[in-house]
Design a protein around this nucleic acid. Sequence first.
RNA 1: CGGGGCGUGGCUCAGCUGGUAGAGCGCUCGCUUCGGGUGCGAGAGAUCGUGAGUUCAAAUCUCACCGCCCCGACCA
Length: 518
Amino acid sequence: MNKPENKQKTEAAAVTPRAQDYSQWYLDVISNAKLAEHSSVRGCMVIRPHGYAIWEKMQRELDDRFKATGHENAYFPLFIPLSFFSREEKHSAGFAKECAVVTHHRLKSVNGEIVPDPDSKLEEPLVVRPTSETIIWAQYKNWIQSYRDLPLLINQWANVVRWEMRTRLFLRTAEFLWQEGHTAHATEAEALEETWRMLDVYADFAENVMAVPVIKGRKTEGERFAGALETLAIEGMMQDGKALQMGTSHYLGQNFSKGADVKFQNKSGQLEYVYATSWGVSTRLVGALIMTHSDDAGLVLPPKLAPIQVIVIPIFKTEEERVRTVEEAKKVLAELKALGVAVRLDDRDGIMPGAKYYEWEGKGVPLRIEVGPKDLEKGSLCIARRFVPEIKGEAPDAQRRRRKSFLPRAEAIASIVPTLGAMQQELLERARALRSDRTRVLDKIEDYEKFFKGEGGGFAWVHWAGSAEQEEEMAKRFETSIRCIPFEDQIPAEAKGEGLCILTGKPSKQRVLMSKSY
RNA sequence: CGGGGCGUGGCUCAGCUGGUAGAGCGCUCGCUUCGGGUGCGAGAGAUCGUGAGUUCAAAUCUCACCGCCCCGACCA
């Protein structure tokens, strides 16, 4: 830290140094050198067990929502024959620059060095899926003949590889886990409805599970998914004011069904191409979670996604006290487990209680229960929250005191579940407040410049009627882009209505969301 | 690929003008301490990114290569 100007740390994102340190309990980003001396694998995310537990919880919540909207899970191949990949022109052009390609199927030792066996060259190279539209639609051709086969509503949980030129901790790794939904419909209206429905599912998940408020809207043509007619997205704001695209839902029209020649016979016996959608969210959401809620003390996790919701810490001096407090802690543990709380005991000896507090707070555990000799005497428990709603101007000491409460045992146990629920809500409100602090309704380009260059930026609601080139100009001048053209109901009251484009002065029907982004 | 910055124990780094390795954190052991990061002592752990060159002598100087990080083009 002595020479920050020399050693630029991986500036992952809007995360404090401590939060970044503790995030290593959940995630590692392995560098090339660490993986293997001459490896070409770079910027891959290693998800440690606790990080994976977060992803598993996300999966479960999302999967429930997918099932509730009539979807089923399936699995398709990792490898896509090159020829499949080139069936949809725009799509392949969009992904061509970032594909890993398999060309051989065997290794050989030549002069003690292991190399791909030249004799094992594949007739047709295989592309490691950057997304699965092409191979899935190749299958759909076999599955769809009649209107009775529609709609086909399928989701896949998988890994994909995108060979980005530059990767970014948490947000853009070369390989990532995600889910991709791929649906086929008889009519455009039905496909569009699906596209909108799944965006709502994502928005609901972001807000109610991740406690990250999002803006729903349409992407501009330039930011659309390669091959889509319409791309919808949810945009969240990270703590540094930058936008993060947290999920997308695409209306693909007949592009892919035409590319893969997927036709169905409608009720009147005519052949028609089906209408398609695709939608996805990825492990990027784990990054979004960390970047949205963390503070100076480390990570903060919403109770609904915390792998450990409650940490129980016995406090003891003597062996006799250790036995008694651990015994009580185990009882507390069992009672909370019975209530469905994800709870863990930290009875490590030789580590001071204070050190444990800091450690678990850094790791984002929402609640801590302390079980000490005094509690045994009084029949009480100490409950400490990872955070409490902020009071402006409050001293850190006072806040710390407010975080702790001593309650009669039964009352304490009974309070855990409601408290977790309250904390979940408080996080969402805190994130909303932060976002609203950093959101402006702007009409003059000078104010825009001041906001993004002087005040650190955030979300700006502005009128826009510029061209694609003028969007580019905005990107060059301010490093901002149109994050989305929001749905009508997403625009705050003070930003509604018609006006004049902030750059060109041309009339505009509604405001768009502008921001710097990840 | 272009422009910058860097490669030294697990981590963060020190080691200026050459004399062949240090600290803090972490880890192990012992005592001490334990309701917000105890203190003390002992210990394990590094072929200084790789290769060549200069030199009696290279972590240090030269060159090449490899790799990483930051900025740009790309992007969930």
